[in-house]
């Protein structure tokens, strides 16, 4: 049985509760960035690019046995860490599950400040892009 998105979110919230210092939290994000399922170089095209103002993020998705699998990369390591968090939670789930998810973990682990729609790391654009892939797989 597949682990639900919310279980994965709760896991991440617990993980972050271990850190009482912002430095440890960001060190953890940087660490996760290094474990990101990296997108193939030939997929680093404009089609897969989320062009935030500051860092570049490439994000691709494929459907396998009814489950969406994401890969990504970024030129900034914190952005890589954040997108790897999203992938850890959303990858290997059905398009419907992804579309119906409320990503409450973002607020709970203190990343809400990254949600600013402009001039930020484009966290919001990443989530929108992931959901739009899921939507396309339904149709």
């Amino acid at each position: 049985m597949n682990i639900s998105i919310d279980t994965l979110q709760n896991e991440i919230i617990e993980e972050f509760e271990l850190f009482d210092d912002w430095m440890d939290k960001y060190e953890h994000i940087v660490e996760m960035g290094k474990n990101l399922p990296v997108i193939n170089t030939e997929m680093k095209t404009d089609e897969h690019l989320i062009d935030g103002c500051q860092s570049k993020v490439w994000l691709a998705a494929r459907l396998e046995d009814g489950k969406v699998h994401f890969t990504a990369d970024s030129d900034a390591i914190i952005t890589k860490g954040i997108v790897s968090l999203l992938i850890r939670v959303l990858s290997n789930h059905s398009p419907a599950e992804i579309l119906n998810t409320d990503l409450y973990m973002i607020d709970r682990i203190g990343l809400a400040t990254h949600l600013s729609p402009t001039r930020s790391n484009g966290l919001l654009s990443m989530i929108n892009k992931m959901k739009s892939y899921a939507k396309a797989f339904i149709h």
Partner: peptide, 9 residues
């Protein structure tokens, strides 16, 4: 290092 990462920290 990417400027964005430095700016955040």
């Amino acid at each position: 290092l990417h400027p964005y990462d430095v700016g955040v920290l």
